[in-house]
Amino acid sequence: MGKNKKKVPGLNTSSTADISFMLLIFFLVTTSMDTDKGLTRRLPPPVEDEEATKQIHENEIFLVRVNQFGQIWASYEGWVGDGDSHYISAYQLRSMVKAFIANEDQLPNWPSRSEAVDIPQLGVVYPTKYHVISVQCDEDAPYHVYFDVQNELVAAYNELRNEFSLKKWGVPFDELSDERKIAIRTFYAQKISEAEPKVRTSK
């Protein structure tokens, strides 16, 4: 039994830095930073017979069209274009859609708010139950315009929900409890329809 204490030579660790550097570079190369963010949408389930689609009253439809040049055109009861410019920007769409869905003043030629709905947390309320935002895109319309339109439509709903939440409970929509979120989502239910896009026939 050797009782004389021999000093153990220290392990040379000067290369640990190089090794970890190599690992670091490996991870830098093979991974990507991009956080996946995007606009979440839900597609309608496939329908067997297209004829079963429900008839909607003219007043309840807000029609958005995008032509092959990416110009946006809106049509609903009571809208008669904006002077010379026939087309609108995606951003204009937001306030127009908001006013249309909310129908604060209960205009008779806009979506009706006459039908009472009993929503938990809210009681009996009068949302614009049957409104529809219909988006129709030309075959050649560029994707980014379509995306902008979708973005603004979602933004309109989100703003309405937020305003409603602030008015009712004084808190932003994001901070509400789940039951209340569901209640507001029922009140302002997203109804964005993308009917089969029109195929342009050359004349």
């Binding site: 996946d36 963010k37 995007g38 606009l39 979440t40 949408r41 839900r42 597609l43 309608p44 389930p45 496939p46 995008v66 895109c137 030309d138 075959e139 050649d140 319309a141 560029p142 994707y143 379509y146 995306f147 979708q150 973005n151 896009p197």
Partner: peptide, 24 residues
Amino acid sequence: KMSLINEIKAQLRQSWALKINYSA
């Protein structure tokens, strides 16, 4: 162009992959 995207969306509907996310 939207024609290609519509085709893809129609196929997704047919295969019941209904939750989509437009990356942006």
